[in-house]
């Protein structure tokens, strides 16, 4: 458990659920990748998942809107929907200071 929390301190686990190659999805992928590189450096773990390929995940992960970014670690779990264009907001939700850059 303590191991987990120390991990959490270091790494932010992000899952981006997209729906195929829609405009919003493409936009979101680009935006989140850019944001991670700029502000999170190596302390992140980003996975991009196409719900079309695994539709059961929509139920499992309670995906309603798309694209949806879920931060599973560190706690608490947070969800952000949208094309990830609002960098300020995402950073606030992820609890990441701009100063880390």
């Amino acid at each position: 458990m303590s191991n987990d929390s120390s991990l959490a301190d270091e790494k932010i686990v992000l899952r981006l659920y997209i729906t195929g190659a829609t405009h919003h999805s493409m936009q979101a992928v680009r935006n989140i990748q850019k944001l991670c590189e700029e502000y999170l450096e190596n302390s992140y773990d980003l996975d991009i998942i196409d719900v079309y390929q695994q539709p059961y995940l929509a139920k499992e992960k309670q995906i309603i809107a798309a694209p949806t970014l879920i931060k599973t670690q560190p706690y608490p779990v947070r969800r952000i929907v949208g094309d990830m264009s609002d960098t300020e907001k995402i950073l606030t939700v992820l609890n990441v200071q701009k100063a880390t850059k």
Binding site: H24, N31, P55, A66, V81, S85, V93
Partner: peptide
């Protein structure tokens, strides 16, 4: 739990229903 950052749609719901 949900924050909004930009444009989105409800495609996730559509996929759930469709599935």
């Amino acid at each position: 739990e949900i924050e909004e950052a930009g444009e989105y749609d409800l495609e996730g719901l559509f996929i759930r229903l469709g599935y």
